[in-house]
Design a protein around this nucleic acid. Structure first.
Lengths: 258, 258
DNA sequence: CGCTGCTTTGAACAACTTCAACTTCTGTGG
DNA sequence: CCACAGAAGTTGAAGTTGTTCAAAGCAGCG
């Protein structure tokens, strides 16, 4: 508050998707160079969220989609009984709000897990632009399709896997998403609590905690609170029942360019 | 084989969405009357599937989306270990194949639960038409969004509900979908086996069977094999933990017109 | 009529949850 | 800078829910 010289109006900052380090993961990846200007024209920075703040709540009218620039969020639904189920964790480069298109209001709440900055994209304008720019329109469909695939993968996780397999599967998934973003596959800080992990995986916190201990004892990883160091990725994949890499994390026509 | 006079080339039958009893649930609901011709031009009937036949399999290239005309299907994923998880049951008026858009190949397999007839919609042409007909393009996004919502609702079911709540929730959902299609809310024939229900709900067959018996003893319903007669819908909703009607079954801007 | 597959029921068992206690971390104010 | 309170995480022991295994019942069909 006292640091007047540091205060800037973030909405004034010129957003350039071109210079964004995430553009290969985000909407711009699909768009013709000439049309990128148009996309940049409708995108705005949003004031960063502090840890625990909501981006939107279940029931809110859908005005914008959001792309994560830095930080992370969780989305969750609340049942009539007041129970919460986390439906996803969202890392930089990922799009939020697609569930809200159906009824023009959000069906999940989105809450920041840490200080998080986002791009705000007016949905009506994006849809309009999508009609004019073929690549963008198609990419939006692909992103929605990807979300369906991910959610249906989670149905398998919750419906068929044991607690051990669920946690291993979760860690493999998170590691590969970090890796895509240029971070280490094997060493990272989780932004979500054990409670959040348990909630997401349909397990009690205590079970998650015990499993971290067991994985550590088995030499699969070392975990100290949020910090995780995977020692044996192959072993972890075996526990998860995933030996092939067939997780959908990249909504492109072809495979990731690496 | 011998009944030559009954054999017709189904592909020759002029499909008219206008005359289809499901048009208020399906793609045409969103389309301007003038554009309906164009949609009808690209839609083809498909040879009906016999019970147990596949419409497509996981990994197949996505060529078409499909709309169920009559009958029903299940979609399921197969894990590396060969385990199957049913991701959805599909009734007349519902669209299949949306998961395949992301990578241009299906991520689930679709199998008929009974004799099933379908409309086949070439995806590329539909996408193209969606760009030209605003209503249709928007409706396609809504249908995908609806699928996300339904899948995320299932995450809650699998992650948080007890076996009893899961089955009650399933029955309430099926009943309301039958009702929308003009059938009785309270009396119907399930096209899926107990095994399929258990698989879908993350439960053992035996558990499902015991629950049917318990619901019957509690006077909530009467079940004889596939035939189900719901005696106390309110009671069933209470068990499911759903007292409000907030299941998303209709992807329209407003509520169903009844 | 006797097969086959689906469903139901019972009893033992296992996995995970719940409850309870304790430890470790984090942040805040004295 | 330390003390303290609250939150988050860990661990153990008891309890429950749902699974697994086994067997019998039932409908449909050649």
């Amino acid at each position: 508050m006292g640091e007047q010289e540091k205060v800037v109006d973030l909405a004034q900052i010129r957003v350039t998707c071109q210079s964004c380090s995430l553009n290969h993961l985000c909407l711009p990846m699909s768009i013709a160079v000439g049309d990128l200007d148009e996309l940049e024209r409708i995108i705005r920075h949003r004031r960063p969220l502090a840890r625990g703040e909501h981006l939107f709540r279940m029931g809110d009218t859908l005005q914008h989609l959001y792309a994560v620039r830095a930080g992370s969020l969780k989305t969750y639904t609340t049942s009539e009984g007041g129970q919460e189920q986390i439906t996803g964790f969202h890392l930089p480069g990922e799009l939020l709000g697609l569930d809200g298109i159906c009824e023009e209001r959000h069906h999940v709440s989105a809450k920041a897990l840490e200080t998080t900055s986002l791009c705000e994209i007016p949905f009506a304008q994006l849809e309009d632009l999508g009609r004019r720019c073929q690549g963008l329109g198609h990419h939006l469909l692909r992103l929605m399709s990807k979300e369906i695939i991910c959610d249906e993968h989670m149905l398998m996780v919750l419906g068929k896997l044991s607690a051990e397999q669920r946690l291993a599967s979760f860690l493999v998934n998170i590691a590969s998403r970090f890796h895509q973003r240029g971070f280490s596959v094997s060493e990272f800080n989780l932004s979500m609590s054990r409670n959040d992990i348990g909630n997401y995986l349909g397990l009690a916190v205590e079970t998650v905690s015990r499993l971290f201990t067991r994985f550590q004892d088995d030499g699969l990883l070392q975990a100290a609170r949020k910090h995780v160091h995977i020692r044996d990725m192959t072993g972890l994949r075996v526990v998860a029942g995933q030996t092939e890499e067939r997780c959908i994390t990249y909504p492109s026509g072809g495979p990731p360019h690496d």
